[in-house]
């Protein structure tokens, strides 16, 4: 995942963009606060995570308290408050993937590659996720929020890690 150093000007421009889009669609009907989630997602997309400095800036722009903004940031699992590794692997741990061997994949990633959920190793961050909608072709993982991988058996998991770690083919 690309990360960019905190820049208040860039943050304000992103906030402005999302508020304008929400107002254009909704008019007066709750538009500003309804832009909060899109704003936080835009900030994460740009900076790689939601920097702690952003909370006050967002609160100020939307006329919310810092507690309200922080409460939203902490509620949603997608929103990160620290920079991730170069790549993020979200491994599905839900029932349909469990039935197809996801638990063995998770154990293998931890044992063989030192990748535990929530941790980062060799630039790869592993997270747990619950259903990627690939339930007939599991085990499944989502790479860098965009690329879905299916039929992720132990062998495929090794290949995936190799392709994501520095020195491996990307």
């Amino acid at each position: 995942m690309d990360t960019t150093a905190w820049d208040v000007g860039q943050a304000k421009a992103l906030i402005e963009r999302e508020v304008r889009a929400a107002r254009a669609f909704l008019g007066d009907d709750g538009a500003d606060q309804s832009a909060l989630l899109p704003i936080l997602q835009a900030l994460q997309h740009h900076f790689g995570f939601v920097p702690p400095e952003a909370v006050a800036v967002v609160a100020d722009a939307l006329n919310l308290s810092k507690a309200e903004v922080k409460g939203v940031v902490s509620f949603y699992k997608d929103l990160r408050t620290s920079p991730p590794g170069e790549h993020v692997v979200a491994l599905c741990r839900a029932e349909a993937c469990q039935a197809r061997g996801a638990e063995a994949v998770a154990a293998h990633l931890e044992r063989t590659h030192g990748l535990a959920p929530g941790g980062t190793s060799h630039g790869v961050t592993l997270t747990n996720t619950y259903c990627l909608g690939n339930c007939a072709l599991g085990p499944a993982a989502l790479i860098d929020d965009t690329k879905l991988v299916g039929r992720l058996d132990l062998h495929a998991a090794d290949a995936l890690v190799a392709s994501l770690t520095p020195g491996g083919k990307s």
């Binding site: 606060q33 309804s34 989630l37 899109p38 936080l40 939307l62 939203v72 509620f75 949603y76």
Partner: peptide, 23 residues
């Protein structure tokens, strides 16, 4: 609008709260 990894937002009133920019 795109969710942010909360299963409970599939519950309709939680979904509406989320759309309004809340937890």
């Amino acid at each position: 609008r795109v969710g942010a990894g909360a299963y409970v937002c599939g519950e309709e009133t939680a979904l509406l709260e989320s759309l309004e920019g809340k937890r």
